[in-house]
């Protein structure tokens, strides 16, 4: 641990819902992440920001079992989940919304949501209704093919699909990517409400200022290593972080 604290300012926490310790991961032979530590407490809203290519999405994919595991520990709700496959991890109560291609275009809205609950024997009616209450546009368009909807609506559907299992932790990979500017604010409001209702959130976001303003805590990732960890507002006001990552 000493060599990490020498180069980073990352505090680790006990008793968190998700705890990542000294994680090494990448794709095939290519290592992207080096000794990444990260915590998400129950109901907490945590973001990962940083420059392009820092490995932000790789952290999320690694938590969800989509990368090559190379070392370290990932614990969720007290159980080790490193090295498990996504279809196993989903049973532990983690939902993942990829950045792009995150709906099944030829399936209807309703069928997309049904797929979200595939691991259950029956699709729970109240789970589907809860998603419709959260995103009323989806109920209006329940019979429409997902591929014919707008980017913002597809993003809502992707989140709705991940919420069908009422996960304890939702992983969001750049939810504002590709959205029209006037929709970005709305999307972040919706994420706030998901978090207010008790779902912990770990989000990667290019839109760093928005992400830092909204979250409880944030990590700044640079070249596959955690550089800073702090309250979102504190990072937002940190002169060095501002200068290096937020454009002054």
């Amino acid at each position: 641990m000493s060599e990490i604290t020498a180069t980073t300012e990352v505090t680790t926490y006990d008793d968190s819902l998700l705890s990542v310790r000294s994680l090494d991961a990448g794709y095939g032979d290519l290592q992207i992440l080096e000794h990444v530590d990260l915590d998400v407490a129950d109901g907490e809203y945590v973001t990962i920001v940083g420059p392009n290519g820092a490995g932000k999405s790789t952290v999320m994919k690694s938590v969800f079992g989509l990368t090559t595991y190379m070392g370290g520990d990932i614990e969720f709700d007290g159980e080790a989940i490193e090295g498990l496959r996504p279809e196993e991890i989903i049973h532990h109560g983690i939902g993942y919304v990829p950045q792009s291609d995150n709906v099944f275009p030829s399936l209807s809205v309703e069928e997309n949501l049904e797929m979200g609950a595939y691991i259950l024997d029956n699709v729970p009616d109240d789970a589907m209704q809860a998603v419709y209450d959260r995103f009323p546009i989806l109920e209006e368009r329940r019979g429409q093919k997902a591929g014919t909807m707008s980017g913002g609506q597809q993003q809502m559907l992707a989140m709705g699909r991940a919420l069908m299992l009422d996960p304890d932790l939702l992983l969001l990979d750049e939810p504002s990517a590709g959205l029209a500017p006037d929709l970005v604010e709305d999307m972040f409001d919706r994420i706030d409400r998901i978090n207010d209702d008790g779902t912990a959130i770990l989000m990667v976001e290019q839109n760093a200022k928005q992400a830092l303003r909204r979250c409880d805590r944030s990590y700044v990732l640079v070249q596959g290593k955690n550089r800073y960890e702090e309250d979102g507002d504190a990072l937002l006001n940190d002169p060095e972080v501002r200068k290096q990552f937020l454009g002054g």
């Binding site: 279809e87 989903i90 993942y96 990829p98 291609d101 709906v103 099944f104 275009p105 797929m115």
Partner: peptide, 11 residues
């Protein structure tokens, strides 16, 4: 439609 997405959906 999308094999990767099917996998992360738990199919």
């Amino acid at each position: 439609d999308n094999r990767d997405l099917a996998q992360v959906t738990g199919i």
